[in-house]
Design a protein around this nucleic acid. Structure first.
Lengths: 128, 128
DNA sequence: TTTCATAATATAGCTTGCTATGCAAATATA
DNA sequence: TATATTTGCATAGCAAGCTATATTATGAAA
């Protein structure tokens, strides 16, 4: 299911210059810009090394820039570029389309039940 | 959810010398040995190149051997080693444990509903 | 003040997914 | 029969996940 979902969304956001690795980071930064790498790691639940590499690719591709923290030289804050801000609407539209496609034929109640159950699985597997 | 699931299962089957990439291939071959690469690709829904690489690693690690087809020189059939056969019970046990862990706190009815809904999503996204 | 531990990030090296492309064998067609 | 197409598999190269380890800056302790 995850592979199919990734394929469907990749297909639609690739023309925007986004991918399934960068999209969650964009969502987090659209919500709150200037977060540190550590904050993004905690929020998105990937390993620190994964985030470091993803941010490097995003910087290379002109989606974000990293500014060093004024108070702590170890820390870098992450900021979106102009281009990255412009992708917000079409990217979210693409994601919504895939969600609708994935849950086609379900009642509203089934959709809710499905996300509730997935959240429960996430909670169960998180506390291991 | 997929990442958490992968982590949980990886942790338990790694001591057996298996991984989330090889496990589905093992399941398919435990069920029916001697399948061709093309058959495995169709059954598991990954790309041909992915399967070729996975089978190479499995051969390297002594899980399978590839024998050339007697009638068609392009085709290779895949066979499990002694060691691979011995992993069947503990691997399935590990997977069952993770399934139980993931669905902890759900009623039997909710579990059924969950798998039904996931199957529907898979069907929906497959026919795109 | 020097040293030690901790914290934030980067890097190396692996797996597993992908697309694109190459190659050899088998099959179809001219 | 000679050529063209199709089929089965391999390889190259990338993304994104992981673990393990290195590097640098900060803060705590001696």
């Amino acid at each position: 299911m995850a592979r199919l979902f990734i394929r469907a969304i990749q297909e639609r956001i690739k023309p925007l210059g986004l991918s399934t690795g960068t999209f969650p980071v964009m969502l987090a930064l659209w919500e709150k810009e200037g977060q540190t790498q550590r904050e993004l790691v905690q929020e998105l639940g990937v390993e620190q090394a994964t985030m470091a590499n993803t941010l490097s690719r995003m910087e290379r591709d002109g989606l974000v820039i990293r500014r060093s923290h004024e108070a702590d030289a170890r820390v870098q804050t992450v900021w979106l570029t102009e281009r990255a801000w412009g992708l917000r609407e079409p990217a979210i539209e693409a994601a919504t389309e895939v969600n609708n496609l994935a849950t086609r034929g379900m009642s509203e109640q089934q959709r809710t039940e499905f996300t509730t159950l997935m959240s429960q699985v996430i909670a169960n597997l998180s506390e291991v």
